[in-house]
Amino acid sequence: MVIFLAKRFAFMLLTMLAVSILVFLLLQVDVASIATKVLGPYSTEEQRRLWLEANGYMEPAVTRYFDWLGSMLVGDFGESIRFRVPVSEVLWPRLGNTAILGGLVFLIMVPLSLILGVLAGMREGSGLDRAITIGAVITTSVPEFASAVLLAFIFVFWLGWLPGTSGMTEGFDLSQMVLPVMVLVLYGFGYITRMMRASMAEVMQSAYIRTANLKGLPYRRVILKHALRNALIAPFTVIILQINWLLSGVIVVEFFFSYKGFGQLLYEASTNKDIDLILGCSMVAVFVAVGTQTIADIGYTYLNPRIRFT
């Protein structure tokens, strides 16, 4: 088990390293434009050159990569051009805000989709099953920005129940969280529901469920004691991997509702050519993604005795 864990972590670190090279290479933009961005359009050629030299942009790419990697490891992400503060000063609070949003989404989405999935997969082909399956297809076909527009139309414009933006200018306000969470849950729950349904339907056809039925156990007991525990293994991975998806989803939702989170930060960074901030944001995003993938792998191995310790 220790060897297995060590292998997984080594692999995770290697992936992170490769990703950091990829991100660094992808973002090797025309440095002159950064200088223009910082110093303004009326700066002279000479000023820009001096600024670039002073900030190390004239060094060869390999040197800059290792410098950057080294300072990242000690938590120094560089300076944000947009906010004129160190990147870490804006990145961590924003990530915290996104964690709140993501936490609420998971708190609602996971139980909801598991229950719907079990109900659908319990009796494959029943009316309830078809209704849930079709409902899940429809909600996954509505992109986040479309459902954001539609829900904002209904709840903000028409009914007037909820605020249309989530800027949190006067402290934390739960009512401003409702719409962002709703949009993300609506788009995301369909996938988990379908996975849960498929897993449940498969378990229901297995021999031990037939045995349990034949020996006259009450249906409730068959579902709760025998089917559910085995059916939950496969969706576990899917649920963890949804964190990766959520990091994409928050960009759209935070942009739409102007929620001050990680997604909006990345968006602002990209529209303002804020290189250090983009590098920092994308590395954190990938770190979270790779980390959750590793957790999903380990968890899956642990839950499923048939593939343990390979």
Binding site: V19, L27, L247, S282, V288
Partner: peptide, 10 residues
């Protein structure tokens, strides 16, 4: 391993 939209934005 990239969150897909992060990759697109980059």
């Amino acid at each position: 391993s990239f969150p897909i939209l992060v990759l697109y934005v980059v």
